[in-house]
C-alpha cells in the first residue's frame, strides 16, 4: 500500500511538473501573427479572400489553444500558420497582377469602344434629320470621355476590380451610343 501511494505521488508530481514547466510559445505566436498581418498587407484579404479567412481562423484556433494552455499543439500549429501565411503571401503579387491586367484589358476595350463610336460619329452625315441627334450623341460621348480617366485613377489606387467594373460600364455605354449613331444614319438613308 505504501509503495502504491509512492507511485501515485510520483505520477502526480511528474504530471504537475510537466504542466507547470511549459511556457506559452510567445515567439511562434508573434511570428505567426506577423506573417498573417504581412499577408493581409500584401492584399490577401482582397485577392485571396477564402484562403486568408482560413488562415485567420487557424491562427485564432491556435491562439485559443494557447489560452487553454495546450502549448505543444499551439506551437506546432503556429509554426505551420507562419509557413502557410508566407506561402499565401507569395501568391498575391501574381493574383494582383492578373487583376491589374484584366483591368487594363477592360480599359483598352472601353477606349476602343469610345474611339469606334467617335469614328462613327465623324462619318455620320450631319444633314436633315440627324443634326440634333448627332449633337446629342456627341454630348453623350463627351460624358464618357470625361469619365474615362476614372478607370486609370482606380487602377492607380490599386482598385483593379473597381477599375474593371468602370471600364465595362463605359464600354457598354459606348457600344450603345454606336448603335444609336447607326440608327441615326439609317434614318437618313430612309
Amino acid at each position: 500500500m505504501k509503495r502504491f501511494s509512492i507511485f501515485l505521488m510520483m505520477g502526480l508530481v511528474l504530471a504537475f511538473l510537466m504542466a507547470s514547466c511549459a511556457k506559452p510559445p510567445t515567439q511562434e505566436m508573434d511570428a505567426a501573427k506577423a506573417a498573417v498581418e504581412a499577408c493581409k498587407a500584401e492584399g490577401a484579404d482582397v485577392y485571396a479572400k477564402e484562403e486568408f479567412k482560413k488562415l485567420s481562423d487557424d491562427l485564432q484556433a491556435a491562439l485559443d489553444q494557447v489560452t487553454a494552455k495546450k502549448y505543444k499543439e499551439a506551437k506546432q500549429a503556429l509554426i505551420k500558420i507562419a509557413a502557410d501565411a508566407e506561402a499565401l503571401k507569395a501568391t498575391i503579387p501574381a493574383k494582383k497582377e492578373e487583376a491589374k491586367n484584366e483591368a487594363i484589358a477592360a480599359q483598352q476595350e472601353a477606349r476602343t469602344a469610345i474611339d469606334e463610336a467617335k469614328a462613327l460619329l465623324e462619318k455620320a452625315p450631319r444633314g436633315k434629320g440627324t443634326k440634333a441627334d448627332i449633337e446629342a450623341l456627341k454630348a453623350d460621348l463627351k460624358g464618357l470621355e470625361d469619365s474615362f480617366p476614372e478607370i486609370q485613377a482606380a487602377i492607380d489606387n490599386g482598385d483593379f476590380f473597381g477599375a474593371k467594373d468602370k471600364a465595362m460600364a463605359i464600354k457598354d455605354k459606348a457600344n450603345s451610343i454606336s448603335e444609336q449613331i447607326k440608327q441615326a444614319m439609317e434614318k437618313v438613308k430612309k
Binding site: 454630348a139 453623350d140 460624358g143 467594373d165 468602370k166 460600364a169
Partner: peptide, 19 residues
C-alpha cells in the same frame, strides 16, 4: 436640344447606375 451639359451628366449618372 440644349443637351451638352445635361446629356454629359445623364451619361455619368447612367455609368454610376450601371456600377
Amino acid at each position: 436640344n440644349e443637351s451638352h451639359e445635361i446629356r454629359q451628366r445623364i451619361i455619368k449618372t447612367e455609368l454610376f447606375l450601371a456600377e
